[in-house]
């Protein structure tokens, strides 16, 4: 296991951790808007770290660039998704933001 592999393994573990954090966030957070926050966390950092980890061990620049392209598109769509859903939830279905009180 060369040092590069150690580094990429570390990135992969980090990515996995953030994906777990995102999923747990979506499960545990009390209302739509917090869950949106957790969702975009998975998109940005979770996937980002996995992409970097894989890019390191892919060994060819073309593959690394393609992985970054995938991540770039996910970033764009996640930014739009978060904004659109939040606006839709607020205006359309009127989901009230969580008022800070502890849910039963």
């Amino acid at each position: 296991m060369s040092p590069l592999d150690f580094l990429s393994a570390a990135f992969l573990f980090g990515g996995g951790a953030f994906c777990l954090a995102g999923t747990v966030g979506v499960l545990r957070f009390p209302d739509v808007y917090c869950r949106l926050h957790a969702l975009t966390k998975v998109d940005n950092l979770g996937l980002g770290l996995v992409v970097v980890g894989l890019a390191l061990q892919s060994g060819s620049w073309a593959t690394a660039l393609k992985l970054l392209l995938v991540w770039f598109f996910v970033l764009i769509s996640s930014a739009f998704t978060c904004q659109l859903i939040a606006r839709a939830a607020l205006r359309g279905r009127g989901a009230a933001p969580w008022g800070g009180r502890r849910e039963p």
């Binding site: 994906c19 979770g46 995938v70």
Partner: peptide
């Protein structure tokens, strides 16, 4: 994530989980 889909009170919650699946699926694929 399926738990939130089943429990999710509003449609928006369920849709958020669908997006989460999409991104995690991309992760698995790469």
């Amino acid at each position: 994530g399926m738990v939130r889909v089943i429990r999710g009170p509003t449609v928006t919650d369920r849709f958020i989980v669908a997006q989460l699946f999409g991104t995690t699926g991309v992760g698995v694929l790469i």
